[in-house]
């Protein structure tokens, strides 16, 4: 077993894990943060995307031990301090950017990472950035719109 500790959504957590314990399993099974979802086993669907030290990664394709000492943010850490939806989350609701909700946590985490790296993405850039996030419900149309809406809110100049 490996002793690990990290900050998850701003809170220090620690635990003893096996070498093979994935970050996704640590989050879901040990911390009961079940918003991070598992939709495939080949690292393609992106339902498990979280931020590790600020970067979007697939939590199912990283060992918990690799995140030792890291700052981890999951979907549970994306709402505002008062519990209201964050800008990206709110945009997803406003634009109907989700249906069954299963891919949604990963989509939101990827969208947030994109908008931090590129506050004014074009439609093509948004679609390309979502290469590693599969949605089966929405046809992506409203996800793209949600990200555009969030971009406009976060960087008002983008709307001009």
């Amino acid at each position: 077993m490996v002793e690990i500790s990290m900050n998850v959504n701003g809170k220090p957590v620690s635990g003893a894990v096996e070498g093979r314990t994935l970050l996704s399993a640590f989050l879901r099974d040990d911390l009961r943060l079940t918003g991070t979802h598992i939709g495939c086993d080949t690292s393609q669907c992106g339902a498990c995307v979280v931020h590790v030290n600020g970067e979007a990664v697939k939590a199912c394709t990283m060992f918990a031990a690799e995140a030792d000492g890291a700052e981890v943010t999951t979907i549970e850490g994306m709402a505002n301090a008062d519990g209201t939806l964050g800008v990206v989350q709110q945009a997803f609701q406003d634009e109907h950017g989700l249906q069954c909700g299963f891919c949604t946590p990963g989509m939101v985490m990827s969208a947030a990472a994109l908008l931090r790296d590129n506050p004014t993405p074009s439609e093509a850039e948004i679609r390309e950035y979502l290469e590693g996030n599969i949605c089966r419900c929405t046809g992506y149309h409203n996800i793209v719109k949600a990200i555009q809406t969030a971009a406009a809110k976060l960087t008002p100049v983008a709307a001009e």
């Binding site: 079940t34 549970e76 994306m78 939806l85 609701q93 989700l98």
Partner: peptide, 13 residues
Amino acid sequence: KRREDVRFLTGKG
């Protein structure tokens, strides 16, 4: 707007 979205968007589905 969909009321169910709030739980899905906050990881509480």
